[in-house]
Design a protein around this nucleic acid. Structure first.
Length: 882
RNA sequence: GCCGCAGUGUUGGAACGGUAGACAAGCUGGACUUAAAAUCCAGUGACUUUAUAAGUCGUGAGAGUUCGAAUCUCUCCUGCGGCACCA
């Protein structure tokens, strides 16, 4: 316990604060606006939130997801997220860690550009306006940000490094161009990544996404699928459970087997083969058909007549494939699950039983999953059944479930997808499906008909955007080199010394949807020299997905003020070694498969390139909850977006912060209400009044007992009250410390409130209130309400330095032990009475039992009854079973 | 359909298998005030009642484990979030 409670005018004057203590006898009204600005300014001036990045001994990197600035500014959801993260950082700082808590703006990208479009301003001009507004608000919320390390993704000094990362990806073969069906948002007029398509709609503007065949830049995230998946199971990977599960689901790892079947025509064997991926090879004796996706190579083989097909059949196939490819996402959804397809005229041979399985083409099979071909087992897969039913294909039962039903499968409800025992499967008969799966896989591999494989749902990250407001992709295309060195494809990265490829300042920046970005119209930008042959060449005119900007920003923050160009990498290696990986990352769960996956991928890649020595960027990730308003998610269209400014002006940032944290558990969010915030303001006002009752004596400072019956307080009253309060204080320190460590802010605040109530209760029995009680109250409250605690700390001259760098209070366990313990008395598990006895006695069954029987409330139940059993929990309860 | 999370007073929410409803909000009554605000005090799960006291019920529904269940197990219902024609 800190003993420094005496007022020390000399030490106090020297360093902190400059303002002279006012011996305010009269109560000052609680007026947060009168001091919040002052402290924010002062904290920055004396740099209490600015750790020594080079020399820190106990570094703690406390990161929160930076906001995308747009629109009207920060909303209360941002304040919620940042406050929750900040409280943890402040707690760590007071525990002696050198906490680095940076903030910046994710201002590049479609979100900000769409807003600029809406308000009719150039994105660059809008960025200046937004930046100012966001930083003003972020200052006002009272977070302990390292303001000397801000970054903005649209700053050329930042995005030149984003471009550098692109180049490294290209050089290491992880960035490539590919023509394929991509997601296209007709409203944003650009392509999107799979992760940015939510339920077939654009993640940003909610428009229905179309499929278009276009050539785009991709990042080979699939190369890291296995690692991205496996790392989530490591014990050191301390992330919110649902985010972990979300990542795993998105990656969609599946173990199975690729089975290769020879292809027959009507006339006999061909040289062709077809490979199907399945996770259920155990059912393969029941396979009766094969379906391939319209994009499958086999279809091409038919269309280019490598394999002969009747001309009428060929026309039919051509028609089907054309229609399937033209189908938009919208039409697919509209069609539901109704199965369509066309028979190819060829058969695949199931070599297990020589069954001739007709080969169909159908768009329910996805070209990009597995091998793009599936083997149909209609009896044990609902989709296969639907298909077989429609095309009148044979259905064979090979598994009998728990219900023992061995009948023929003729209706969809009978399809047996669960556990069971094998039948009609020769050497597998009688085995359970898991045993059979292993057995058949061994068999197929032995025969050379199949090979065990792992597949992933995850697909490569489409990085190109046909927009203006982003980092230009730093690539150059040379037609001449494309013909002389076709292996390179004619694409060369911009020389690193020429970075950044600056985004030209143009007036014609709006997206057109032609498949090319606005930069393609800027001749002076497009025309350049080939880095290879020095001849005329053309720049790439697409810009990077904004998620690339945010996939590495945490690497940059600690190095913001270091040029670190000696090593030619975007961060200082020594500083990075000291601060990374991030110790604690806090953000919204909506980024489960977007930002978090990309950031992990980029980090892994950079590690493999040798630029980093860790592969997971965030040791701990905490997903906070969502703040809703009037029972619904905040959105502009609903008109229920809560802007914090008015509340900060009216009640102060402390009230808003503490109120938000008191709403409920931090990972659950809550509903924002005006009545609740007024209640929190009342609480802080009580704290304020407690702290304002200061009286200076000659050598001592204490809180005067203002109660009217002070004269009647005896010294034994005083002693007893002191004792009660001391116990309460130590208990509160323990509870609040434990709760903050577990991010249980709502209960931490409740415990502080209880403590304040306790002070109020016993105050009238005390001659004066020792300052230690107030001091610890302020320390516990400091992470939640940084301004009011600092102001009172200063007014009461409680320390030489800011409260926010004062050591966190500790508790003495000896005060946690109560002298008397309450023992619960139960009869048959029902509460009948309670007993307050000395703690030592409470551990002895004999004494407790004797005392318990004395109780009238208990004895009336025990009378005339035989006690079968007595359960005694020392120090807790006694239960008579009759 | 699959996976995850949740369901407790009027409301937000507390409760290592051991006093359900901490702490708040709201409401009711009272004190102070010319009045209001602010502040302070008291009450506030439902029901029975002989009502300053005693008792019964009560944590989405039902079963189970246990001396004892909001908490553990199973089945079901509802809500939220994620994935979804993924083989």
């Amino acid at each position: 316990m800190d003993k420094e409670i005496k007022y020390n005018p000399t030490g106090f004057e020297k360093k902190w604060p400059r303002k002279r203590l006012k011996h305010s006898r009269g109560k000052q009204a609680f007026n947060p606006t009168s001091f919040e600005g002052k402290w924010q300014h002062y904290w920055e001036k004396v740099r209490i939130y600015q750790p020594d990045l080079k020399r820190a001994r106990k570094p703690f990197y406390n990161l929160m997801m930076f906001p995308y600035p747009s629109a009207e500014g920060l909303h209360v959801g941002n304040v919620y997220a940042f406050t929750g993260a900040d409280i943890y950082g402040r707690f760590k700082r007071m525990q002696g860690f050198e906490v680095f808590e940076p903030i910046g703006l994710d201002g590049f990208g479609i979100h900000s550009e769409n807003y600029a479009l809406k308000v009719g301003r150039h994105p660059k001009e809008q960025a200046i306006v937004s930046e100012k507004n966001f930083y003003r608000q972020l200052h006002a919320t009272g977070n302990g940000f390292a303001w000397e390390n801000t970054l903005e993704t649209y700053d050329p000094n930042y995005y030149k490094r984003t471009q550098w990362i692109f180049i490294q990806m290209f050089k290491h073969g992880l960035a490539y161009r590919k023509k394929s069906l991509v997601n296209f948002c007709p409203s944003c007029k650009t392509v999107l990544s799979d992760e940015q398509v939510i339920d077939g709609h654009c993640e940003r503007c909610k428009s229905l996404v179309e499929k278009r065949e276009m050539e785009q830049w991709f990042f080979k995230i699939t190369a890291y699928g296995e690692k991205l998946y496996q790392n989530t199971f490591k014990e050191s990977f301390k992330w919110s459970g649902k985010v972990k599960v979300g990542q795993r689901n998105w990656i969609g790892r599946k173990e199975g087997i690729n089975i290769t079947y020879p292809i027959l025509s009507d006339t006999g064997p061909t040289k062709e083969k077809i490979t199907c991926f399945t996770t259920r090879p155990d059912t393969n004796f029941g396979a009766t058909f094969v379906v391939v996706a319209p994009e499958h190579d086999f279809v091409a083989t038919l269309l280019n007549s490598k394999l002969k097909t009747q001309s009428s059949k060929l026309t039919e196939i051509e028609k089907y494939v054309k229609r399937a490819k033209a189908k938009s996402e919208m039409e697919r959804i509209a069609e539901g699950r109704e199965k369509t397809g066309v028979f190819t005229g060829y058969y695949a041979v199931n070599q297990l039983n020589d069954y001739k399985m007709p080969i169909f083409i159908s768009d329910f099979v996805l070209g990009h999953f597995g091998t793009g071909a599936v083997v149909g087992v209609a009896g044990h897969d609902a989709r296969d059944f639907q298909f077989a039913n429609k095309f009148k294909l044979k259905i064979i039962r090979v598994v009998v479930g728990k219900n023992g039903d061995k009948s023929e499968i003729t209706r969809e409800e009978q399809v047996q997808e669960e556990e069971g025992t094998m039948v009609n499967s020769e050497f597998l008969n009688g085995m359970d499906i898991h045993e059979a799966t292993e057995k058949i896989m061994d068999y197929l591999e032995e025969k050379g008909w199949g090979k065990r494989v792992t597949t992933y749902r995850l697909r490569d990250w489409c990085i190109s955007r046909q927009r203006y407001w982003g980092a230009p992709i730093p690539m150059i295309y040379c037609k001449k080199c494309a013909s002389t060195a076709p292996a390179q494809g004619g694409w060369y990265p911009v020389a690193e010394k020429d970075l950044p490829v600056e985004l030209p300042d143009v007036s014609d920046w709006k997206p057109e949807g032609t498949g090319k970005g606005p930069l393609s119209k800027v001749k002076s930008f497009v025309e350049t020299k080939c880095p290879n042959c020095k001849g005329p060449a053309l720049r790439e005119t697409d810009v990077c997905d904004t998620f690339l900007d945010s996939s590495w920003y945490f690497l940059r923050y600690p190095s913001v003020n270091k040029e670190s160009d000696g090593k030619n990498i975007p961060w200082d290696p020594d500083i990075t070694k000291k601060w990374l990986p991030v110790d604690q990352y806090t953000g919204g769960a909506e980024h489960t498969v977007l930002h978090l996956l990309y950031a992990r991928f980029i980090t892994m890649a950079l590690k493999d390139f040798g630029y980093l020595d860790f592969e997971e960027p965030f040791e701990q990730f905490y997903a906070h909850g969502l703040i809703i308003a009037e029972g619904a998610k905040m959105s502009k269209s609903r008109g229920n977006v809560v802007i914090p400014d008015a509340y900060i002006n009216k009640y102060g940032a402390d009230t808003l912060r503490t109120y938000l944290m008191f709403l409920g558990p931090f990972d659950q969010g809550g509903d924002f209400r005006d009545t609740g915030i007024a209640g929190m303001h009342r609480f802080l006002n009580r704290v304020w009044r407690l702290g304002s009752e200061v009286v200076l004596n000659q050598s001592e400072v204490f809180l005067a007992n203002t109660s009217t019956n002070k004269l009647r307080v005896t010294s034994s009253d005083n002693h007893r009250a002191q004792d009660t309060l001391t116990r309460s204080m130590h208990k509160t320190i323990k509870e609040v410390t434990d709760d903050i460590a577990a991010l249980k802010y709502n209960t931490a605040i409740a415990h502080i409130m209880e403590y304040v109530n306790e002070i109020s209760n016993v105050k009238s029995q005390m001659l004066n209130l020792d300052l230690i009680y107030i001091k610890n109250l302020l320390l516990l409250l400091a992470p939640f309400a940084p301004f009011i605690t600092e102001e009172l700390w200063n007014n009461l001259a409680l320390g030489r330095d800011s409260i926010h760098i004062h050591p966190w209070p500790s508790f003495d366990p000896k005060y946690l032990k109560e002298e008397k313990t309450v023992i619960i008395i139960q009869v048959n598990g029902k509460l009948r009475d309670s007993l307050k006895i000395a703690s030592l006695e409470a551990k002895k069954q004999q004494t407790v039992e004797k005392e318990a029987r004395k109780s009238g409330r208990v004895s009336k139940y025990l009378e005339g009854q035989k006690i079968k059993k007595t359960v005694f929990v020392p120090g807790k309860l006694i239960n008579f079973v009759i």
